[in-house]
Every structure is written in structure tokens, then in C-alpha cells.
């Protein structure tokens, strides 16, 4: 089996890089952390990796709008590298702030020119940043590589701007991967099951290839039993729900 190499991108304000590195290492990848300046200056090259991750955080303070400044930077300074990376079959994962960045850079949903994004992520309906655990359903029709074989997930969210907003036509074309549900898996979830007011309870989407995936919840925060908020009440499990996402990515990349 070939060694899978993943790069976790870091920009000013990224703050979930260390645990994302750890999650991919646990899943068997060789992981590098790269500052965006290193990628722009080509001190590190995307083409050396099969997986690229934009982790959570508050890049550039989320000033102006969450992820906006990094999105422009990616689009204008790394746009071609990223396009080639996707064309070459690479996997891209955006978590939380990474979701906001990928959408605002026009990399997701993937069918639109960058200057005309069709969807966005905006302030939670509650007007608050909130950290809470959410139940997620997985769209079985989705081409997403990362969620293969997964039906449901229980993961934490922690964001103030996670509400997916899109016009109805865009919505029907969207590759929805994850949606917020209630405790029983029903997609009729209101607040706080849907923590931000996302249209259609959307929590994660991918591009048509299924290789570019972004989600608001944090799978890297639930890769082991003791991260579950109620683990002291539950039977011991080897891995947390989020771990499968990293395993799926590494497994797929091994085939590249």
C-alpha cells in the first residue's frame, strides 16, 4: 500500500490544525502542516499530497465575514494550484472555517465561477456563537468519498456563522452530504438540533466528484471514546464517529 500524504493548511487564525493532524495520523496518513505562505511561495507544493485540509478556526479573525479573506487569498494566489490538485484526483476537506472558505472561494459547490458563488454561510439565526453536539444524517445518494458507509454521526459544532443560505434553484442542484437531525434521526430538526438555521438542515456538502467535501461540524473532535459528551454513561467504543471520515479519506487516497 502506498503511503498517503496529507497537508493541513494553516493561516493566521487557524486553530484546529493540531487535532486535525492527529486525526489523519491516527488514520494512517503522513501529515504535514503548512502555512499558507509556504504554499504560496511554493516552499511546499500541493502536488506532493493526496489530501488537503482547511481546518477550523477564525482565519483573519473572521473580519468582514467568516472565511472571506482567506477565501480571496486562496482564489487569487493559490487558485490554479488548487484547480490542478482537484483535477489530479486529490481530496479536499474543509472543516468549519474551512467550509466557509471553500464556499466563499467558489471551490464549492463547484459548478459556479468563483466570482458568482451561489451559496454562502452566514450568521446563525440565534445570533450567537454556539458550541454543542449535533446529530447528523448522511445522504445515501451522495457521491462523497469521505462519508462512504456511514449512516449517522454525532459530532460537535462550534461556530457563529454556519447557516447555509442558497436560492432554491441552487439548492436543488446541491450535493448535500450531511444534514442536521433530531436525536432519533428525523430530518424534521429545529433549533437547537439544527444549531444555525441552515436551509434544508444542511450541515455538509460536496462537489460532483465527491472528492471535495466540507462540513460545519468537527469530526476531528470525536475520534475517540472519551470525547463523547456522555461517554461516562456509555459502553466503551474503540473510535468516535468522526474517525471514519478520516479513515475513508486515507483509504481512498491509498488507491490513487
Amino acid at each position: 500500500m502506498s503511503q498517503v500524504r496529507a497537508v493541513i493548511m494553516r493561516a493566521p487564525g487557524t486553530n484546529c490544525d493540531a487535532e486535525t493532524v492527529f486525526a489523519f495520523q491516527q488514520a494512517g496518513a503522513v501529515v504535514d502542516s503548512a502555512h499558507i505562505n509556504q504554499l504560496i511561495r511554493h516552499e511546499k507544493r500541493l502536488s506532493d499530497y493526496q489530501i488537503m485540509v482547511i481546518p477550523g478556526g477564525f482565519t483573519y479573525g473572521d473580519d468582514i465575514a467568516a472565511g472571506k479573506v482567506l477565501a480571496n487569498e486562496l482564489r487569487l494566489k493559490l487558485g490554479e494550484d488548487i484547480l490542478r490538485f482537484i483535477e489530479d484526483g486529490g481530496l479536499i476537506l474543509g472543516i468549519c472555517n474551512g467550509f466557509q472558505v471553500l464556499v466563499k472561494a467558489g471551490i464549492l459547490p463547484g459548478s459556479s465561477p468563483a466570482s458568482q458563488p451561489l451559496i454562502t454561510l452566514s450568521s446563525n439565526d440565534s445570533g450567537k456563537f454556539e458550541c454543542r453536539w449535533v446529530h447528523l444524517g448522511v445522504n445515501s445518494q451522495s457521491p462523497c468519498i469521505f462519508t462512504r458507509g456511514i449512516n449517522r454521526l454525532y459530532l460537535p459544532v462550534a461556530h457563529g456563522e454556519g447557516k447555509v443560505v442558497a436560492d432554491p434553484e441552487t439548492l436543488s442542484d446541491l450535493n448535500v452530504v450531511l444534514y442536521y437531525t433530531d436525536e432519533h434521526g428525523s430530518s424534521n430538526a429545529g433549533y437547537p438540533d439544527n444549531p444555525n438555521g441552515s436551509v434544508g438542515n444542511i450541515a455538509g456538502i460536496c462537489d460532483a466528484s465527491g472528492r471535495v467535501f466540507a462540513l460545519m461540524p468537527h469530526p476531528e473532535r470525536y475520534i475517540r471514546h472519551t470525547q463523547h459528551p456522555q461517554w461516562t454513561r456509555l459502553k466503551k467504543e474503540e473510535y468516535g464517529d468522526g474517525f471514519q471520515i478520516f479513515q475513508n479519506a486515507v483509504k481512498w487516497a491509498q488507491g490513487l
Binding site: 484546529c16 493540531a18 487535532e19 492527529f22 450567537k128 456563537f129 454543542r132 476531528e220 473532535r221
Partner: peptide, 12 residues
């Protein structure tokens, strides 16, 4: 709830 108490993935 308005604090991030999960970041760094270390909470037990």
C-alpha cells in the same frame, strides 16, 4: 455554550 470548549480535541 458560547465558549468553544471542544477546540484542541482534548476535553474528557
Amino acid at each position: 455554550r458560547q465558549y468553544d470548549h471542544e477546540v484542541q480535541g482534548a476535553s474528557v
